[in-house]
Simulated scan of single mutants.
Amino acid sequence: MVMKGDGPMVVGLMWSMAVLCTFFTVLRTYTRTVIVKSFGADDIVFIVACLMFVMYTIFLTISASIGFGQNTWEIPDVDIPPTVLYSAIGQTFSIFGMAIAKWSLGLFLLRLVCTRRHKIAIWLPLILCFITSLLCAAFFWFGCTPIEAVWNRALPGSHCNVLPRVPMYYVYGSTLVFTDFYFALFPWLFIWKLNMKKREKIVVLCSMSLGIFAAAFGILRCSQISGLTSPNFVKAAVRVILFAAAEQCVTMICIGIPVCRPLYRQCINRRVSRDSSNCNNISGTHQTVALRSMIGGETRSRGVTWNRSTIRDSHFPTAGELARHTSTSEAGFDADENRSDDEISVCEQRGSSKASMDPEKG
Rank of each mutant, 00 (worst) to 15 (best):
G67Y: 03
P262S: 08
W192V: 07
R111L: 04
Y182D: 04
E148K: 15
G7A: 09
N338R: 11
L27N: 01
I62V: 15
R111N: 03
M1N: 04
L134S: 05
T145A: 13
C21N: 15
G67D: 09
F140Q: 15
G362H: 02
L176P: 01
V36K: 13
S209I: 09
T299S: 10
Y264K: 08
I191R: 05
T25A: 14
A137C: 14
E200V: 05
G67F: 04
F233D: 02
A99K: 02
T326N: 03
A244R: 09
R153N: 12
T132V: 15
D42H: 01
R302G: 00
D336G: 06
L20Q: 05
V19D: 04
G143N: 10
T33S: 12
F213L: 15
H325E: 02
R199G: 15
T229P: 00
Q287H: 10
F130N: 11
F213M: 11
W188H: 09
I120E: 06
V54G: 00
V240G: 10
F96N: 03
L291E: 12
V272A: 07
T251L: 13
A154Y: 12
Y172H: 13
S104D: 02
F93S: 10
Q266A: 10
P76L: 12
C21R: 08
F93I: 14
V19W: 07
N278M: 11
I75P: 04
N269E: 12
K198M: 08
Y182W: 08
A49F: 05
I202L: 07
N269K: 09
F243N: 14
N161S: 11
V34K: 13
T31Y: 01
K201S: 04
K193L: 06
S207V: 02
F190W: 08
E200N: 08
L228V: 13
F233Q: 07
T305E: 00
R165E: 09
F130C: 14
I295L: 14
E200K: 11
I241F: 07
S353N: 05
I253P: 00
E74N: 12
F96M: 12
A18P: 01
V2W: 02
C21E: 14
L112T: 15
A246T: 13
P359R: 07
F23K: 12
I311A: 09
R270F: 07
R265V: 14
M168G: 07
I191K: 06
P156R: 14
N161H: 11
Y172S: 09
A244P: 02
S94A: 14
F140K: 14
A323D: 10
L27D: 02
D336S: 05
L135F: 02
M208Y: 00
R153I: 10
V54S: 01
L134T: 08
W15P: 02
L20F: 06
W188M: 09
F178S: 10
L112G: 13
Q224S: 15
R270D: 14
R111P: 00
R261Y: 10
D341T: 13
L110C: 11
L185D: 00
L27T: 04
I219N: 07
Y170P: 11
M196R: 02
P8D: 10
D77T: 11
R239E: 15
A245Q: 06
Y30H: 10
A49I: 14
P258A: 06
S352F: 03
T328K: 03
I95D: 01
A236H: 06
R308M: 08
N152V: 11
F243V: 11
C50N: 13
F39P: 05
F93M: 15
V240A: 08
